[in-house]
Amino acid sequence: MSVPDRDAARRQLAGLARWRPAEIAFWVAVLAAYALFPQRAALIAEVAVIALFALSLDLVLGYAGILTLGHAAFFGWGAYVAGIAASRGWEDPTLGLLLGGGTAGVLGLLGAPLVLRGGDLTRLMVTLGLATVLHELANRFTGLTGGADGLQGMVVGPLLGMFEFDLEGHVGAAYALAVLFLAFLLLRRIALSPFGWSLRAIRANPLRAAALGIPLRRRLVAAYTIGAALAGVAGALLAQVTQFVSLDVLSFQRSADGLLVLLIGGVGWLYGGLVGAVVFKLMQDLLSSLTPQYWQFWIGALLVVLVLLGRERPRAWIARLRRPAEGAAP
């Protein structure tokens, strides 16, 4: 081995973790959007929630390769836990966030062995089943959840004990963006860590990953659990920012929206969820103002057309802007 080779290797590996100008520009643009459109604070908060949900789904679907039709189970769980906590006198938003995320993570950990028990078909069935069961439970236990009327009477205290949530939603939007950014930093680290690479290895070639000695099951359970916890955080965030929880946090539509966001932005890279969420929300607003009743048709048409065009395409456009050796990061 020559010393230059070693240095080149070190540089290449270190380069994977470096912040690229485009990444920094992206987050600056997010900040700018918040500063420039104060009257759209509610929309910005909503986009942040969708983006966080999509990120958590991408960890499960894109990085770990676990097919799921019911990721809303964890989102809705987190929303109801934070909502119920806030309506029973636990007003601190940070506490609600941790409770929602933590319990959703436990749920994911308990569900993972069932989800991972079979092939793709089994995974679809179990994930969909879990979300449907939770939806039915929330519908049934009206005393706790408010049932079809939604959860009323949430009182969310000031953020960090200092910032009261205002009616215009400025604090809410800032809060949502801050949580999104923190979660993104965490996921970015995870994606670049040896753990993240072992997930990529498992998805790309489980046979080889096992032959390298990577314990597949344990890695997938870990990814599923983290994904569940983050989805719970996203749900809790939605509950706190809107101060309301309705049954649709657990709906199939919610899970499908997450899939569509990733389809738009690209599966298996973190900015896919972020970019997808922005495009998705803007489009949803546009479509539902054009055809308020039937935007679902256009959502469906978009899914079909994007798949037929090829899922890799949007990502390929962006990848072309980057250097090929860095194609797999972050």
Binding site: L259, L263, F297, A301, L303, R311
Partner: peptide, 16 residues
Amino acid sequence: LDQVLFSVGLIFMAMA
């Protein structure tokens, strides 16, 4: 994954 996304899209269209 593609097949799932595709057929979910068809469901939405059919429902609408």
